[in-house]
Amino acid sequence: MSGRQKKLLQQLGLWVLIVIISVYALFPFYYAIITSFKSGSAIFQVTYWPTDFSLANYWGVLAQGRFPRNIFNSIVVSFAVVVLSLLLAVTAAYALARVRFQGRGILLFTILSVSMFPQIAVLAGLFEMVRGLGLYNNLLSLILAYMIFTLPFTVWVLTTFMRDLPIELEEAAIVDGAKPHQIIFQVFMPLMWPALVTTGLLAFIAAWNEFLFALTFVSNDAQRTVPVAIALLSGATEQEIPWGPIMAASVIVTVPLVILVLIFQRRIVAGLTAGAVKG
């Protein structure tokens, strides 16, 4: 085999792999979409290509029942979680990245270990607290509880990002008489938009997707978030699972995420890998 043939064969192998990977990654979502457009008995006919374009399932999910309310709940919780965790994390990250003080290493290590906590380990204690504070069936309980996984991560990524900002900026600001909070909000903040967008996005996705706390701290249909609502969508009997509406609901809650991912894919990849492989 000549060198050129060999190269051609390598290229072919690469492209076969590329196609397999793409199809593997996208097929389940594609299949959910084509299923969601089928109505009636068409749904029980396995097809590989789109055949129906009925909006009945979407209409059923959005116009009847509480699903729109669930979407609203998820939006409220996710935005609140993003704002709160960014606010708490930016100031904390400045302290951790820019100031040398005793206990800094231990604090960083503790924050990192919190992010490795299994959620179930705090479930009983949190449940007790949520009930004690009268927050059961209240979205506030979720906003508070979600801090356990968004906050450590946000602090961590923002700290690594801030550590790399040039020291000259800070020195110049100090010479100009700037106080620490002015340094954060007037000098660093404008430079930190990329990191804020990344961490905010990841916190949003984490909050939007969370299930265990949402299942446990809310038992009232009107207060449920989207993942729990989808998990509990059921028919009259075990045999009558409403696959059409479930797929429509799944597509509705996933499409915004997929769009976000497509727009911000570079930032998301940077955020996912920050801290993990740095240094």
Partner: peptide, 9 residues
Amino acid sequence: VPWAIPTIV
């Protein structure tokens, strides 16, 4: 895409 899709979904 698989990463972003909620686990429940």
